[in-house]
Nucleic acid binder design. Structure first.
Lengths: 232, 232
DNA sequence: GTAATACTGTCGTCCAGACGACAATTGAAA
DNA sequence: TTTCAATTGTCGTCTGGACGACAGTATTAC
């Protein structure tokens, strides 16, 4: 088995992650709840009342939407230092997304009525939140654009590139995308049916553009991979 | 001709709009540029360097993406009080979106290196920006979900509902959506081809669900319209 | 007022991929 | 270790809607 770790270097360079120092923890102590959740547990579900916003301390939380016909679309994965559960719309007091733990998690919950105090508690917090939201908006916008322009295989390739940027770790001459995803999960991220994802992955494997190591995608040549799915 | 105005009531209720009072204008005066632009002018284009963020003073600015094959997708319309041009990603110093004026506009430009000062200049500004971004994230997420679940007509209906919520003004027993959009513009908002939009609009007209007044969509019965495109 | 451009309406063809189905393989639970 | 559930692989059918084309209508520019 190949032992793979996420590079701590790429994490520490991400300056928009929120960490609560002792002063903050002390100050918001009366309001903070630390939730420990198992894999598969929901932090909250769509249509439930908005009471708190959340910051991931440990683990990975998937944010996704579900349509009326049960179709699921993944919007984001939150890692430690990322905030979620903010009021998405002033018109309703219910969540429109689901937040589910992909692995055992620890999540800080703070009541929404403390949000104002929270962003004023430190010069950096508001800026970090704005950066996080901006990045998410760009990525969701990327996905939307891909939907209108690209076939399934191209959308898959672009997703793998985005995942590589976020989770890639060097391994031999290539890169391992250090996150385990089923074909169904991938289909929910590119809005395709699972069978189509299986087929497209098979093609990429047959072409030698990806392989599997320890259930993770391995890209032998990132340079070659970056050329896929773009205009010549 | 029917004279129609956007309801000033719905605008003033939107508490996340940014207005610059005299103190702010004075304080940022050395940095602020007021740009007056004609219909069709770009505030900025994708792939150009990020220098400023912007706040609309007057008019309507369309934010959109263009894919490699030239496919356009509209993400948002900015009205007075709305901010755009924020750094979308820390990795690149170029815009990924286009910002184009739909009508004659006035737009404040402030250098991005003043953004930190800007959000600390008043207790409310950061909160308002966060709310604006959150709402946009939700709507873009709505659109993404619609793409994966709904046929073209349903997506059109849902778009009209969203537009009604934002631009609707009461008229007789129904509602006029007080924004003029071509079929092509609509197609860019729902990721369909123009001909499909024309066909779907024709069906809605034939069913009596919408008609045209002064080049704007009129919905005779909002109650009936709200039932369209949802599960029975 | 006229000419050019943009927009709307309509039609027929074609295909990417969703869908349903089922078998084979892998992973998790007892 | 065995059983069950989840995941992956494969196949054939069908259709929504993209596409290209063109005519009719409305708007804009001069």
């Amino acid at each position: 088995m190949v032992e793979v770790r996420m590079s701590t270097e790429s994490i520490s360079k991400n300056k928009s992650l929120i960490t609560l120092d002792k002063d903050m923890l002390q100050r918001f102590k009366p309001y903070i709840t630390i939730n420990t959740l198992c894999k598969g547990n929901f932090v909250f579900q769509a249509s439930t009342p908005k009471k708190c916003f959340y910051i991931v301390l440990k683990g990975r939380v998937k944010l996704f939407r579900v349509s009326e016909i049960g179709r699921e679309i993944t919007q984001w994965f939150c890692f430690p230092g990322e905030i979620f559960g903010l009021a998405e719309s002033p018109e309703t007091n219910q969540h429109s997304i689901f937040a589910q733990c992909c692995e055992p998690c620890e999540v800080i919950a703070i009541p929404l009525n403390q949000f104002n105090n929270f962003i004023q508690s430190s010069p950096d917090v508001a800026l970090k939140i704005i950066e996080q939201l901006s990045v998410r908006l760009k990525i969701v916008g990327d996905t939307l654009l891909d939907f209108t322009s690209d076939d399934v295989k191209t959308r898959l390739v672009k997703l793998l590139k985005r995942l590589n940027k976020r989770f890639g770790v060097t391994h031999n001459d290539g890169v391992i995308i250090n996150i385990v995803l089923t074909h169904k999960e991938i289909s929910d991220m590119i809005g395709a049916c699972r069978q189509s994802v299986t087929t497209a992955l098979g093609e990429l494997k047959a072409e030698g553009n990806i392989s599997l190591i320890d259930n993770r995608f391995f890209i032998p040549s990132v340079e070659k991979f970056e050329k896929l799915g773009t205009m010549p």
